[in-house]
């Protein structure tokens, strides 16, 4: 399951850089999920926590939204990981940003970012948010998300499949644990 960890964290964040996860052998997830018990306590604790996600559309093409909605269906059933979508950014641990930033949504995006309490994780979902995708800069399209707000994790794809997004959310749990530790 964690085979994509390395791929996912393509840009600045890599699993290797997270101190508690240095010894994590990702291959143990591939065959036998019961081996989760053998994880390091720190990792296990990080994975066991809940995660509240706030979705923020900054101009996406609706495909990412469709996949995020699909996460709640009975096949992917994201609540079994303790992950829920929340209605308000004030309750959120994670801001899941989709789409390149448009001129008309820039202010709304910055306000939502400010409204999310610390420690917060920002993930860019889909090519539009990660690198601008096919959308060039125009009068109304300002480009990728990390020009405006700091992004902690990138989940590329056009759109990424629900499996990839779930994996990304699990990584978020670890990143959040790390951030909390750092802040004391």
């Amino acid at each position: 399951m964690f085979d994509l960890l390395k791929v996912l964290i393509t840009k600045r964040i890599t699993v290797e850089n997270i101190p508690d996860l240095k010894n994590l052998d990702v291959s143990i997830f591939e065959k036998d999920l019961s081996k989760v018990c053998q994880l390091e306590p720190a990792v296990k604790q990080a994975l066991s926590r809940s995660l509240l996600v706030r979705h923020l559309d900054t101009g996406s093409c609706n495909a990412e939204e469709a996949e995020l909605i699909a996460l709640s269906n009975s096949i992917y059933d994201i609540s079994r990981f303790g992950i829920e979508f929340t209605a308000s950014p004030r309750h959120a641990d994670v801001l899941a940003v989709t789409g390149p930033v448009t001129r008309h949504l820039k202010i709304a995006m910055e306000r939502t970012y400010k409204a999310t309490p610390k420690p917060k994780i920002i993930i860019a979902i889909g090519d539009g948010a990660c690198n601008g995708s096919v959308y060039e800069k125009t009068y109304a399209c300002l480009g990728r998300v990390d020009q405006f707000i700091p992004v902690d994790l990138y989940i590329p794809g056009n759109p990424p499949t629900p499996e990839e997004v779930i994996k990304g959310f699990l990584v978020c749990k670890m990143l959040l644990a790390k951030k909390e530790k750092k802040n004391g």
Partner: peptide, 11 residues
Amino acid sequence: LFYTHKGLEKM
């Protein structure tokens, strides 16, 4: 509306 207006026609 037109919050997600990206100017595709210009693009």
